[in-house]
Design a protein around this nucleic acid. Structure first.
Lengths: 340, 340
DNA sequence: GCCCCGTCTGGGAGCGCTCCCAGAACCCGC
DNA sequence: GCGGGTTCTGGGAGCGCTCCCAGACGGGGC
C-alpha cells in the first residue's frame, strides 16, 4: 500500500461501475438522471451505489461539469435583522427541506459592510449556480444587480426596486384584506392600521389590503400610522399617534405581530380592554402572537412553504424548465385568537 | 441551456504564471502562502494576480488538494427551535464575521428526520474540513459521533454527552451566580428559580450558579421548578408551581428570557407587582427582555462573540495550531432593567 | 435488400488546481 | 577542491468526475 497522497475516503465512481458491471459513463448518467439508460443498468447502478455507500465527489463534479452544484442563500441587509426574525428561521427550514436529496450545497452568505463588490464577484464567478436572496428593504439594489448579471435568482419578498426579478412572497394584500373583513364582520366601525415603513413592499402591500377592505364598505381610510421599522417600540409609538388622532377607535390592524406587541402594551396602559374596546389583528403568526397577552388574532403565512417555494422556483429554473411564473404569491390564512 | 462545454470565466493559474514569468507551481505556492518562494517571484505573482483579476477555482483546489476549503454549520435537533432563537442569529453573524476574507465556504446543514446517517457520511466524506455544531439538547449524540470520526468540530453550548469534544459556551454558571447575588443585594430573601430541562447543560449550569449563589449566604435552595422546554408556556407552568409551593416568594431567577415572559404573565395575573412584590431576572438578554412589561433585568451573553469564538477555534485547529483550549467559556454581564 | 434514426454503451480527454519529485543554485565548513 | 545542507524552481502526474465522440444494436421506411 504505497499511498503517498492521502485520498479521500469512500468509493469512486469507477468502483460503482465495476460492481454494477457497467462503465463509469453509465453510472454518471444514472446519477444525473439522464435518459438513454436501460432500466437494467439503472437498477444495477442503484444497487451498487447502495451497496458501496457511494456519494459523488462534489468538487470533481463541479470541476468537470458546467455547473457548480451549489446555490447561495444571500442574506442581504446587514443580516442581523433578518436573522433574528423567526420568519427567516422557517424559510430556512423550507429551503433545506426542498434541497434534501438533491446534490446541491447550500452556501450561506451575508453581505457585510466590507464586501459588496466582492460578493457579487463571488456569486457571478461560477461558484454557485443561482441564489436565493432574502432582503428586507425593498429598495435594496442587490437583487436587481445580481439578476442583471444573468445569475438565476429568486428573491424572498417582493422587491420594490424590482424590475423583473423573480420573487416569492406571501399574499400580503389579501391577507390584510381578510383581516379587515373580519374586523368589519365583528361590527367594528373605526378601524385603524399601523403600517410598516414606506420602503418595504411587505408593508405597502398590507396597507393596500387594509385600504381596499375599508373601501369595499365605504369606510374612511384615514387612520394610518407608519412605523419606521418592524419593532415593538415603533409599534407602540404608532399606536400612541393613532390614539391621539382617534381616541375612540375600536380596531387596529397591525402589519406585523412584533409591532402589535408594542401596540398592545400602549392600549393596555391607557386602559383599553382588548378586544372589548379595541380589537387587534396582527400579521405573521409568529411565535410572539400566541404568547402575547391576550393571544393575538393574526394573519398566518406559511413560512416553511415560503422557503420551499423559493427553492423550488430556483431549481426549476436551473433545470431549464420553461414557462415558470415570474413571481409567486402564497396564500395566507386568518388565525383567530383572543384579540379580535 | 447546453452550450457545449462552457468554461468558467476568468483567467487560470497558467495565465498568471505566464504574466508573472514563473511556473504555475510557484504561483500555487504564493497563493497558499508557502515558504521557499523568493521575494521577487512573490511580488511578480501578486502583481499578475491583481492585473488579471485572478481568483482561484474552489472546486479545483478542493479536488487536487487535501482539504475541502469549506466548513459546515450543522444545526442539530430539528432546526426549527434553534433557528427561531434570536440567539442563533447572532451566532451566525459572528461565524460569518470570523470567516470573512479567508477562502472558506460556509455550508449550512440541518439534520432532518431523514438523514442522520447520511449527514455523518457527508460530513466525514471529505466535503468539509470541519464543522460547527449548534445543538440544543445536551444529550445529542451527534457532536460526539462526529468528533470520534476525527472530524475537527466545535460545539456551541456545552454538550452533556460530551466526552472531550471541544466546545464554546457562555459562562452560564457565573452568569446565574451574578443574578442571584444581585437579588440578594436587593434584600430578597426567598429566591426561587425556574430551571431549564434536565437534559440541557445550559439549564443545569445556570441552576448550579443559582444554587451556589444562595449557598454562599446560607440560604435554602429548595425552590426549584424545572420546565420541560424553553418556552413561555413552560415558564408559566413552572411559575404556577412555585407560587403554589411558596406564595410568599420575593424573587425568581428564570433560566431564559423566553420563559420569564410566561412567568411574568402568571405573576401579574395573580396580582403580584414587579419588582415590588417579586423581582424577576432572566437570562440571555434577547430582544424579548427589553420589550417585556416591565422590561426584564437579565444576564447578557454576547452571541456574536459566541459565533466568532467557535469559528476561531475551529480554524485554528484546522491550521494545525497547538495548545488550543479544549473548551472556552465566554463572560456574561448583568443588564439592569425594571424587573429587578 | 438498403439507409436512417433512436436507443444505449464504453472510452478517454480534460476541468484547474496541488503536490511530489528532481534538480538548479547557492551557501557553509572542511 | 569536495560533500551536504538549505533555498528556490519547473515539470508533470493525478484528484474524480462530466461530457464528447464513436460505435453497437435494433426497428422502422423505402
Amino acid at each position: 500500500m504505497t499511498e503517498g497522497r492521502s485520498r479521500r475516503p469512500g468509493p469512486r465512481i469507477e468502483e460503482v461501475a465495476r460492481v454494477a458491471g457497467v462503465s463509469k459513463s453509465t453510472v454518471s448518467r444514472v446519477i444525473n438522471g439522464e435518459k438513454y439508460v436501460s432500466e437494467r443498468s439503472r437498477q444495477a447502478v442503484h444497487r451498487a451505489i447502495a451497496l458501496l455507500g457511494y456519494s459523488p465527489n462534489h468538487a470533481a463534479r463541479t470541476l468537470a461539469g458546467s455547473k457548480a452544484n451549489a446555490i447561495a442563500l444571500v442574506i442581504s441587509e446587514q443580516g442581523s435583522r433578518v436573522l433574528a426574525d423567526p420568519f427567516f428561521a422557517g424559510v430556512l427550514r423550507g429551503v433545506h427541506a426542498e434541497l434534501a436529496g438533491r446534490h446541491v450545497q447550500l452556501l450561506l452568505m451575508m453581505n457585510q459592510p466590507l464586501d459588496g463588490e466582492d460578493q457579487i464577484a463571488y456569486l457571478t464567478g461560477g461558484h454557485v449556480d443561482g441564489a436565493l436572496v432574502v432582503s428586507l428593504h425593498g429598495e435594496d439594489p442587490l437583487p436587481r444587480t445580481l439578476h442583471e448579471t444573468g445569475l438565476p435568482i429568486v428573491v424572498g419578498g417582493r422587491p420594490l426596486a424590482g424590475g423583473s426579478v423573480p420573487f416569492v412572497d406571501a399574499d400580503n394584500f389579501n391577507g390584510a384584506l381578510g383581516a379587515v373583513r373580519l374586523l368589519i364582520s365583528l361590527g367594528r366601525e373605526k378601524i385603524a392600521t399601523i403600517a410598516g415603513p414606506h420602503d418595504m413592499a411587505v408593508g405597502m402591500d398590507r396597507l393596500s389590503g387594509w385600504r381596499c377592505g375599508l373601501a369595499e364598505h365605504g369606510m374612511p381610510v384615514e387612520l394610518v400610522a407608519h412605523s419606521s421599522e418592524f419593532s415593538p417600540e415603533c409599534g407602540a409609538l404608532a399606536m400612541e399617534e393613532l390614539l391621539r388622532r382617534a381616541p375612540d377607535l375600536d380596531a387596529v390592524f397591525v402589519a406585523a405581530d412584533i409591532m402589535a406587541l408594542g401596540a398592545l402594551r400602549v392600549l393596555q396602559e391607557r386602559g383599553y380592554r382588548i378586544p372589548d374596546d379595541v380589537a387587534v389583528v396582527g400579521f405573521d403568526d409568529s411565535v410572539l402572537a400566541s404568547t402575547a397577552v391576550p393571544p393575538l388574532t393574526t394573519v398566518r403565512q406559511d413560512v416553511e412553504r415560503f422557503g420551499r417555494t423559493m427553492t423550488w422556483r430556483l431549481l426549476a429554473e436551473l433545470a431549464g424548465e420553461e414557462k415558470l411564473p415570474q413571481s409567486m404569491l402564497l396564500p395566507t390564512s386568518l388565525v383567530r385568537r383572543a384579540s379580535a
